[in-house]
């Protein structure tokens, strides 16, 4: 179980690299979205490891909030011109 957790955290850091280095704003938004979904998986593994179910509450709330955040970012991108 610890191995899985470690691999997922490595994946999250790969996404973080994209958020930090992404050449355009949508790239960063994609990275943030991906991190949100990965954290849900991390919460699931935490839930198995500790055997406590409130981690799954965290997962559900996180999934919904990440979805709202992604929609807000997308709306923001639509409303604004992008020139580089």
């Amino acid at each position: 179980m610890h191995t899985f957790l470690l691999l997922l955290i490595i994946g999250t850091f790969l996404c973080l690299y994209r958020v930090a280095m992404g050449p355009t704003p949508p790239d960063r938004a994609v990275g943030i979205d991906t991190i949100g979904v990965m954290v849900v998986g991390i919460c699931g593994i935490f839930g198995i490891m500790t055997g406590q179910d409130f981690y799954l509450n965290v997962a559900i709330a996180w999934a919904l909030l990440a979805f709202l955040g992604t929609l807000a970012l997308a709306k923001y991108l639509e409303g604004r011109g992008f020139d580089e």
Binding site: D33, G44, T70, A74, F82
Partner: peptide, 25 residues
């Protein structure tokens, strides 16, 4: 949680792609 993720993620990525295209990426 799995159902929520499956339901929301295509909507989110569709909105992101559309936003990126309209923003001119």
């Amino acid at each position: 949680a799995a159902v929520f993720v499956l339901w929301t993620s295509p909507t989110g990525s569709h909105a992101l792609a559309r936003g990126a295209h309209i923003a001119g990426v």
